[in-house]
């Protein structure tokens, strides 16, 4: 065999070898996979936050506590490197595109809840080079932590600052771990996932359930009869940076 032939053969073998794992998986695929029975489903999940109800209890953090405990979100003491799925901030930071010096006076020290907007056209999904973040058919912008390479392109692309990166191993900063849910590891990006794991079991998201004032309304934005659509049709609401065209699915009822 001359060198040329050898190289051709070597190239061919490498290509074929790349197909082997696929062959092994096919053997597994003979079994059936089905969606869970009794799951809550929707065509486009969305959330409406009744801001005024939320303000009735300005010091309440039940939703944040419930979410962060359930999902093993670490409490990292360095604010610049913290991880958060749902948190609070002031009007001028939440809606910086709507500057109005008088509003700022009205809204001073009034908290607005922040979480991933689960956009209709999510820029984070568009830029992810491995489809580690992707949009599900029910509108949830999902994370596959197994696949994330930690390039943080999604963080640069998200106009809402909704994504957190694990700059260090998060585990030492989880004081009371929930054994039912995984943690994350250093080097991956994470965010709110609209409690996909609870919807699968027929339960509402943890923050919605935890809210004493029922200020969080969660439902299908494409179902005429859902509570969320009824509320949004009857009351004035705003979304964060809607002019960017990402189509946020989180609405703020004012």
């Amino acid at each position: 065999m001359d060198r040329r032939k050898f190289l051709k053969l070597a190239g061919l073998s490498v290509t074929l070898a790349g197909g082997v794992p696929g062959f092994l998986n096919r053997e597994v695929k003979a079994r059936a996979y089905t969606p869970p029975p009794g799951a809550l489903t929707a065509r486009r999940w969305g959330m409406a936050i009744d801001v005024k109800k939320c303000w009735e209890e300005p010091n309440c953090n039940e939703c944040i506590k419930a979410c962060h405990h359930l999902h093993n979100v670490p409490d990292i003491p360095d604010k610049k490197r913290e991880v958060k799925w749902i948190w609070k901030d002031e009007f001028e930071h939440v809606f910086p595109d709507k500057p109005n010096e008088f509003n700022n006076i009205i809204f001073t020290h009034k908290p607005f809840l922040l979480l991933c907007n689960h956009c209709e056209h999510p820029p984070c999904v568009r830029v992810c080079p491995t489809q580690a973040t992707f949009k599900r058919e029910d509108g949830i912008v999902m994370m596959d932590y197994h696949r994330c390479i930690g390039c943080r392109f999604c963080m640069a692309a998200c106009p809402f600052g909704a994504r957190s990166f694990n700059w260090v191993d998060p585990r030492p900063y989880i004081k009371d771990p929930n054994p039912k849910f995984p943690t994350r590891m250093k080097g991956v990006v994470e965010k709110c996932l609209f409690c996909y794991e609870r919807l699968e079991k027929g339960k509402m998201p943890a923050c919605v359930e935890a809210c004493k004032k029922k200020a969080l309304i969660f439902g299908d934005l494409e179902d005429e009869h859902s509570e969320i659509v009824q509320v949004l049709k009857s009351r004035f609401s705003i979304r964060r940076k809607s002019e960017l065209g990402t189509g946020p699915s989180v609405f703020y009822l004012l």
Partner: peptide, 8 residues
Amino acid sequence: DIGQTHRL
């Protein structure tokens, strides 16, 4: 720069 080097 990437966080999960071995997943490159």
